[in-house]
Amino acid sequence: MILFTGVNKKYADGTVALRNINLKIEKGEFVFLIGASGCGKSSLIKLLIKEEDATSGLVRVNGYDLSGMSAKAVPFFRRSLGIVFQDFRLLNNKTVFENIAFALRVTGASPKTIRRHVPMAMAMVGLTKKADAYPGQLSGGEQQRVAIARAIANNPVLLIADEPTGNLDPDNSWEIMRLLQEINSIGTTVLVATHERAIVNAMSQRVIAISDGRIIRDERKGIYEDEGRNS
C-alpha cells in the first residue's frame, strides 16, 4: 500500500526535511503520524500525494512508483487517494452536494454515477440534510465532514488526512476521528497526521513518530509521547 525505502528529502534552499525514511503501511491499517511542527510530517505527506518528489529513495503508493512517475500520470494516481486538509479546502461558491460531486466530475464520472455516489458519501458523514447548504453556512466540523465526504466519494483505497482536526474544537475533533475510524472499518487505509495527544492516546492505533526528519518510533497500539524523551 505505502512503501518508503531509504527516502531522503532535501529542498532547494538546503533544508533537509526527511532522512533515510523506511516505512511500510499495509492495506486496511489506521496509522497516526505524529511529531512537532517542522519535524518533517508535512514533507512526508507531500511525498505521499506527489506534491513533492523525493531527493533519493523509493516511494510506492497504491501500486504506483512515485519516483519515476510522469506529470501526466499524477492526476490518475491522485484519484486513488482521498485527501483531507486542516483548512478543509472546499469551494465556497458550490453547495455541499456540488463540492462532493466535483471530485467525481473531475474524474469524468457520469451524471448517473454522481447521483448515486454523492448521496452515499453525504450519508456516510451524516450531512444528507445539508446538501444544498454552502460551506459558509456550515460549522467547522461540518465543513470538515464535507471534505471527508469529498475525499471518499471516489472510493479511494487510501485516505490521507493532514491535521484534520487542527481547526476544530475537541467535540468536533472526536467526531471527525470517529468518522475516519468508521471509514477505516470498511477497508480503507487511513493515515492521519496530527498533534492531538488525547485522541492518539485514546484510539490506540499504530503510531509513527517523526522527529528531525527521522522516524523515531513506530508502534502498534501506540501512544503520543514527548519527542524529548526519545531523542
Partner: peptide, 16 residues
C-alpha cells in the same frame, strides 16, 4: 488559484 489547487488534489488532469 485555490480552486485550481483543490482540483489538482482531487485528481483533475491539467487539461481538465
Amino acid at each position: 488559484r485555490k480552486e485550481i489547487g483543490i482540483m489538482k488534489h482531487i485528481g483533475a488532469t491539467d487539461w481538465f
